[in-house]
Amino acid sequence: MSNQAISTLEPVPDFAVLAAGLQDEFRALIAQYEDSRSALLPIIHRFQEAEGYVSPQAMQVSAELLNLPLAVVESTVSFYTLFFRKPVGKYMLQVCRNLSCALNGAEEIMAQFRERLGVGHLETTDDGLFSYEEVECLAACDKAPCMQVNLDFVYHLTPDLVDALLAGIRNGTYTDTPPLPQRAKPERSWHVAQDTGKKAAGALGVSNPNAPGGIGDASGRAALQRIVDDTAVGARTHERLVREGQAGTLHPGKDAHERH
C-alpha cells in the first residue's frame, strides 16, 4: 500500500505487515457489498481481532482502502461500543447491569468484580490482564446474571463462579476463552468516560450528582426547572398526539400529566 498518504502517524513495521497480509481478506469483504463503504465495520472488526483494539493505523488504512476521510472512519468507529479505540486487557469482562440481571443479583456481582479487580467501569487492571465494563442487556435474561468474557457468554453468575473465573484466568486454567491479542500496552483507563453518569462510586456505579454540572448542582437544577416550567413543550406534544389520534392510547398515567 502507498505510504504517501498524508499522515502524522509513525510507521509501525508490525502493523504494515499485518495490514498487507489482510489485503485479500479485505477485498473479499468489500466484494460482498454493492457499496464498498459497507465493508467498514467488517474491516474494523478484523483489525480489532488481530490487534486487540482499533489502532489509529487501522483506521488510517481503512480510510485509504475505502476512500473515506479519516474523520468519517473515526466518527463511525467511535459510535460503536464494541470497538475499543484504546488498548484493553487480555480479557475484556463485560457484565450485564440491566433489569433482569439486576433483579437476580447483578449489583452484588458487579460490586464483587470491582472489589476483586480494584478497577471500575471502563478501566483496565495495572497488569493489563483485565478490562472491566458494565454493559447493557446481553439477551440472555433467562440465565441471569450473565456476562461475556471476550464475547463468550458466562451464565448464572454467582460469587463463587466470579472468584473461580478470575482465579482460572490468572493461573491459566481457564481456557474456554482465548485472550485478546496484545500489540500495545493497555492503558489503565482505556476509554474516555463519555457518560459520567455511570462512573465509579457507590453501589449503583454512578457519579456524584452534586458535582458541578450534576443534576444535584444548584445551577443544573435551575436549568432543569426552567425546562419543566416550559409548559409549551408539553402542550405541543399533546396537540400533536391528539392530532394523530394517539393521545391517551399508549401510556397509562398520561392523563395525570396533562396539567400543562
Partner: peptide, 15 residues
C-alpha cells in the same frame, strides 16, 4: 434521558 437518569441516581443516593 440523561436528566431523568441522573435524577433517579440522586434519589437513590439519598439526595
Amino acid at each position: 434521558g440523561n436528566w431523568i437518569s441522573r435524577t433517579l441516581t440522586r434519589i437513590l443516593d439519598g439526595r
